[in-house]
Amino acid sequence: MTGAATAPVLRVRGLTRRFGGVVAVADVDLDIAPGERRAVLGPNGAGKSTLFNLIAGADTPTSGSIELFGADVTRLGARQRARLGLSRTFQTSRLLTGLTVEDNLYLAAVGVSGGRLRLLRTARDRTAREQARATAESVGMTDRLATLAGDLSHGEQRQLEIGLALVAEPRMLLLDEPAAGLSRSERQLLTALLLSLDRDVTLLLIEHDMDVALTVAERVTMMHDGVVIVEGTPAEIRGDQRVHDLYLGKAHV
């Protein structure tokens, strides 16, 4: 798995995104191997979310390129990348609030499997429904299937947010601050869920919560002011003076 021959799932080269005079992401290179668990850390404004949106296709880079599963996707939109096997969660939950939990998961299954415009119910619906229910079970929401997503508690909404990303069995999963606003026990459940994910899935997560990030990740990329300042194992990151300075707000690098 760590062999040099393994082609990266995600290869980012010279990625830059300017907003007017502000350079949110500056010349970032990133390689993520199949099955890897990678965390991107950094203080507010470091450019994590912008980098994330660029990778997911929700935003277009000013320059640079993004390769996903060996194909250049720099010019593809979010939906084409989703169909290639890239799933994402959102920092603030984006759920289909007027639909039930089951219908949310069902649509997530249909979105990638095809038949999005079907006007008749077919056997594929049954498969998608089964996928939806199985995912609900794995994120612990079986008893909430008939509840409207808009009526869920914050913690449950975050659970469903992850469920939506998992249901289509993605090859790569982008998690944007999955622990945001969760209680301590909910964070432990989340960590356990992420650790239990199949190795076929490559994981890239942005997280403010160091405990979750450093437990789940095998490698950590540290960003500050739009650039990658250090990359290493969680142990290396814990011991890095620059990381300490950044998080304790002592000085800028």
């Binding site: 939906r79 169909r83 984006r94 759920l95 007027g98 639909l99 649509l107 997530a108 999005r116």
Partner: peptide
């Protein structure tokens, strides 16, 4: 409900 989410789901 949410066009951004739907695009992210492949629609």
């Amino acid at each position: 409900d949410d066009p951004v989410r739907m695009a992210a789901l492949g629609y």
